[in-house]
């Protein structure tokens, strides 16, 4: 037998340009998914850029034309929504919606087409007997989509932040979108990207568990929905809350309010008996002030980064389990 070295021989006789080896195989096999992702990113980026430029201008023009924005306080009816603002809102919604939907599409695709279908039809085994160890195969299946997802999601996130940084007055005028609301919160930071990576990991593990495309697709989407729901519920408690207190009425509403109520003279927190201005009632209940537990907008990054850390840790753990499972099943040395 001839000794074979895989490293120092020139790659192939008919050297064509472009990606090589496992990377080529990944891009070629999932060409449709790649095009779809590029299209999705292009649509999202286009929508956000349009909203940032002409969309916002048209909404402002409409607002001023209605005689709003010149007097303070604004006229009644200035928060009524006109067609230009509706269009603007739709485009923002498309951009943010793609950021929100991408993790679920990723999970479905990873569970179905990326891994599940290959295990079901035996093409995974084909790769494993074409000099690619299962571990390398899985690593490529994870790394290539992860790189493309991260790039696309970060690009859309940056565009969303660009839009967010300039449309503050419009948001204030129309009373729409706050920094802490679900989609906005995720689209403005590292969370949307990390959820997409979590979707990839969950889809891969679901497929390795189910070994069939459609059940894996279903399982991946359901599990990701559960994970996002749980994390969304615990989100306010991932960073210490700040508290505002006030003597006669509630403190101003200035951020993500998590808890509120009344304070007694001993400093105990009680449910508001809703006395409003009735001093007798307040005295009866021994109410001396009110409090609000909240996150100011300066907590955006701490909250964002803690949750990102958790999501990425869960994703890493999922990937680890996936590799373990594959290794146990194939008995393969790396």
């Amino acid at each position: 037998m001839t000794a074979v070295t895989t490293l120092d021989t020139p790659a192939a006789v008919t050297s064509s340009r472009g990606p090589r080896g496992l990377l080529w195989a990944m891009l070629r096999l999932h060409r449709w998914a790649l095009w779809f992702w590029l299209l999705l990113v292009a649509v999202g980026a286009g929508a956000l850029l349009w909203a940032y430029g002409p969309g916002a201008d048209a909404a402002w023009a409409e607002y001023h034309k209605a005689g709003c924005g010149s007097t303070t306080p604004p006229d009644l009816g200035c928060d009524l929504i006109g067609p230009a603002y509706t269009r603007y809102d739709t485009f923002v919604g498309v951009g943010a919606g793609i950021l929100g939907l991408a993790p679920f599409l990723t999970a479905a695709w990873a569970g179905g087409a990326l891994i599940g279908r290959e295990l079901e039809s035996g093409t995974a085994q084909l790769a494993w007997t074409q000099s690619v160890s299962p571990a390398r195969w899985l690593a490529a299946k994870l790394a290539v989509p992860a790189a493309l997802l991260t790039t696309g999601m970060l690009l859309l996130t940056l565009l969303h932040r660009l839009l967010w940084s300039t449309d503050g007055p419009l948001r204030a005028a129309m009373g729409s979108r706050s920094w802490y609301q679900g989609t906005t919160f995720e689209a403005n930071g590292t969370l949307a990207t990390s959820y997409a990576l979590l979707g990839l990991a969950v889809g891969v593990l679901a497929a390795l568990l189910q070994r069939r495309a459609l059940p894996a697709l279903g399982l991946a989407v359901v599990v990701l929905a559960l994970l996002t729901t749980v994390l969304g519920t615990v989100r306010p408690y991932l960073w210490p809350l700040e508290t505002l207190t006030n003597k006669h009425e509630y403190p101003a509403y200035i951020g993500m309010v998590v808890d509120e109520g009344a304070l007694t003279s001993t400093g105990a927190r009680v449910a508001d008996p809703i006395c409003v201005d009735n001093t007798k009632c307040l005295a009866e209940h021994d109410i001396v002030g009110f409090y609000r537990d909240y996150h100011p907008s300066s907590h955006f990054w701490p909250l964002q980064l803690v949750e990102t850390g958790i999501v990425l840790a869960v994703a890493a753990l999922t990937v680890l389990v996936a590799f373990r499972l594959l290794n146990r099943r194939t008995g393969a040395a790396v």
């Binding site: 449910a271 508001d272 008996p273 809703i274 006395c275 409003v276 009735n278 009632c281 209940h285």
Partner: peptide, 18 residues
């Protein structure tokens, strides 16, 4: 609808809020 304290047939707001 409630009133504080309860009157005119309206229950007290603290009881409703609870």
């Amino acid at each position: 609808p409630c009133a504080e304290p309860a009157h005119d047939g309206y229950p007290s707001c603290s009881s409703v809020e609870a």
